[in-house]
Design a protein around this nucleic acid. Structure first.
Length: 416
RNA sequence: GGAGGGGUGGCCGAGCGGUCAAUGGCAGCAGACUGUAAAUCUGCCGACGAAUGUCUACGUUGGUUCAAAUCCAACCCCCUCCA
């Protein structure tokens, strides 16, 4: 890789975002010459995005910060088809209502990371349902279908892998890449968009769009992908026991979000700092070189920075403070997740297993019993003797009862 | 349309009349060791119940049987080959 002149490409390669590009030199020149408009598409398959989407979101953020214009494309239309990339099975079809609801949830996330508006480098959000829903089948086939070679489409991983594994691929899904290619063309026509970015699994879809633009409009379009994120031990990024690591506070509290980053594997700290914070590279290198227990300092900084971006400085500071009180001082920080129980019930006392289940520390009474039998449950930092012990008013300390499941999961019980 | 094969717990995958809440692996939870890490080792891992236990589960619906995930029938879905 030779020297890159544009700030954007320089930054993202340095920070580990770069996977591949259709024409790196050409893109570099274009970015150096002036403002470039670029887009990334997002599925509307859930009502929030999760950490898996954070990489492309950060990419758009860097794009905007280096003086270019990001477009967030909501896949309101394409979600109705379903992207087969990287999947062995067709996703179940979502209803239009679901899609609309999901889109509303996702929109909230972007406001934290990008500046929206009407200015030349302000981000805009568009929905591909706006044009895909209008398509006339025959006209579309004649105008664009002829530019796609089925032979070629079969060679793209999203299709090829499915066929090789003898997994079914419906014609509906087969069309996905054509629609995504068409999106790029539409965006280039409507908004002068010249670059599509996405995860490495989107490469085939992106290339198709670049080619369609050249064939139909003789446009120079570019594609760029970011690597697929996995942790150092090979797990997919952003999935935990409780489910995905959501970016919406409604789906996952800032405290849990902070904890997710705090628990990063050692081997990932440097890489994650580069990708998910905006600290200077020198500082990151220094942090990543910390050894042994010292690297915990780097993890705290990672958690602080990442939480600040998604939930704001105040939430990040509070999470950090709560963590300090809870883990370093062993105290019951009053900002731990709290569950209110009617005072009358506490007076009577609640069996320990039932309390753990109600606090959300166990999914069922049975699981709570197992937790207690296995010695992982604590009340006010003392192991619970028996699952049927009555817990109530006598256990209140400073007005709260601290329940712990293992070392990391804590909940405060308060009377109401 | 014809001939085969298959649908089992979050996933993969055994079981093929009772001893099956169902071997094993993965994932997950907890414990030990550590540093709120990884790796490793140990325990747990359907729901409800203090408990003998009760209930719900092996594509769906019926049937045979004292007894079915296991046998039979119909139906639904998937795969392979043939037309």
């Amino acid at each position: 890789m030779t020297t890159l002149r544009s700030d954007f490409l320089h930054t993202i390669t340095e920070r580990g975002f770069f996977n591949q590009c259709t024409d790196l030199d050409g893109l570099d020149s274009r970015l150096s010459a002036g403002t470039v408009t670029a887009y990334i598409g997002f599925d509307c398959t859930a009502d929030s995005l999760h950490v898996g989407s954070l990489l492309p979101i950060m990419l758009l953020r860097h794009l905007q910060k280096s003086g270019h214009k990001p477009i967030v494309l909501m896949g309101g239309g394409t979600t109705r088809v379903g992207d087969p990339s990287g999947k062995d099975e067709a996703r179940k079809l979502l209803s239009d209502d679901d899609i609309a609801r999901n889109m509303a949830g996702i929109k909230q996330v972007f406001g934290k990371f990008l500046t929206f508006g009407d200015g030349p480098t302000d981000a805009v959000m568009v929905n591909n349902a706006d044009w895909l829903d209008q398509i006339n089948y025959i006209a579309f086939l004649r105008d664009f279908g002829r530019h796609f070679s089925v032979n070629r489409m079969m060679s793209f991983d999203s299709v090829k892998l499915r066929l090789e594994r003898e997994q079914p691929l419906s014609f509906l899904e087969f069309n996905y890449m054509i629609l995504q290619a068409y999106d790029f063309l539409e965006l280039s026509r409507r908004l002068g968009c010249a670059l599509q970015m996405g995860g490495s699994d989107q490469w085939g879809n992106i290339v198709n769009g670049v080619e369609l633009g050249r064939r139909v409009d003789a446009r120079d379009l570019f594609g760029l992908t970011v690597p697929l994120m996995t942790t150092a031990s090979g797990a997919k990024m952003g999935k935990t026991a409780q489910g995905a690591v959501w970016l919406n506070a409604e789906r996952l509290s800032a405290w849990d979000y902070w904890q997710f980053w705090r628990n990063t594997e050692d081997a990932d700290v440097g890489r994650f700092l580069k990708l998910f914070t905006e600290l200077p590279i020198d500082e990151i290198n220094r942090l990543a070189d910390l050894e042994g227990a010292e690297i915990n300092e780097a993890k705290k900084i990672l958690a602080n920075e990442a939480t600040r971006l998604a939930h704001g400085a105040a939430a990040a500071a509070q999470a950090a403070e709560t963590a300090k009180r809870t883990f370093e001082e062993g105290a019951a920080a009053d900002s731990l997740p709290t569950v209110a129980i009617p005072a009358a019930e506490l007076t009577t006392g609640i069996p320990a297993f039932a309390l753990f289940a109600r606090a959300g520390l166990a999914a069922s009474n049975g699981e709570a019993r197992r937790l207690i039998k296995g010695g992982g449950a604590k009340i006010n930092d003392d192991a619970v003797g028996s699952e049927t012990d009555l817990i109530g008013t006598p256990h209140l300390k400073d007005g709260v009862i601290k329940l712990s499941a293992g070392k990391k999961r804590h909940v405060l019980i308060k009377a109401e």
